[in-house]
């Protein structure tokens, strides 16, 4: 179910710990990188791969907020709205994004490109307001202009990727 390089990565992860179960969180990242989300089928596959039970995998997937059990947009825009960011106007940023993309937080645009989520403190409070695209380096000190530029850049990137 995973590409050969990713399988190799999991093999390498398994050498790091005395217990294969420990490799679960990084292995889930490897799987999510490939698919964008982690289906039950994929969870079962990883369970067998790591020699643990499917229940043990799903318990973990559903506990950690960054693993997606359902598909999300190609670009997952995660806007921090915890107090420090709120003080600096994160609510305006997320509201602007919602309006711009014509979706509510938690939803995905019809073209499958963008999902907008409200998330909790990302450790970027001094450069608020901010957001994170997928698991990329943060976009910080946001203004409406910066948000516009970001969305444009991602759209162009998606088109480039397809063409």
């Amino acid at each position: 179910m995973l590409t050969p390089e990713r399988e190799k990565k999991i093999d390498e992860l398994l050498t790091r710990y005395p217990s294969s179960r420990s490799a679960l969180l990084p292995a889930l990242w490897v799987a999510q990188e490939q698919y964008g989300w982690i289906s039950l089928e994929l969870q079962k596959y990883l369970a067998i791969r790591l020699g643990i039970t499917p229940e043990q995998v799903r318990e973990v997937v559903t506990f950690y907020s960054m693993y997606n059990e359902r598909p999300v947009g190609k670009y997952h825009l995660q806007v921090c709205c915890t107090t420090p960011c709120m003080l600096m106007g994160s609510d305006d940023v997320i509201g602007y994004l919602e309006k711009k993309l014509d979706i509510r937080r938690g939803q995905t645009t019809a073209d499958g490109l963008f999902t907008v989520s409200q998330v909790e403190c990302l450790g970027s409070c001094g450069t608020a307001p901010m957001l994170q695209v997928n698991r990329e380096k943060y976009d910080e000190n946001l203004t409406y202009e910066k948000v516009d530029a970001l969305v444009d850049r991602l759209r162009a990137q998606a088109e480039g990727g397809n063409g």
Partner: peptide, 10 residues
Amino acid sequence: VYTHPGAGAY
């Protein structure tokens, strides 16, 4: 020395 990622849980 190894790094290990979390996945979103304070």
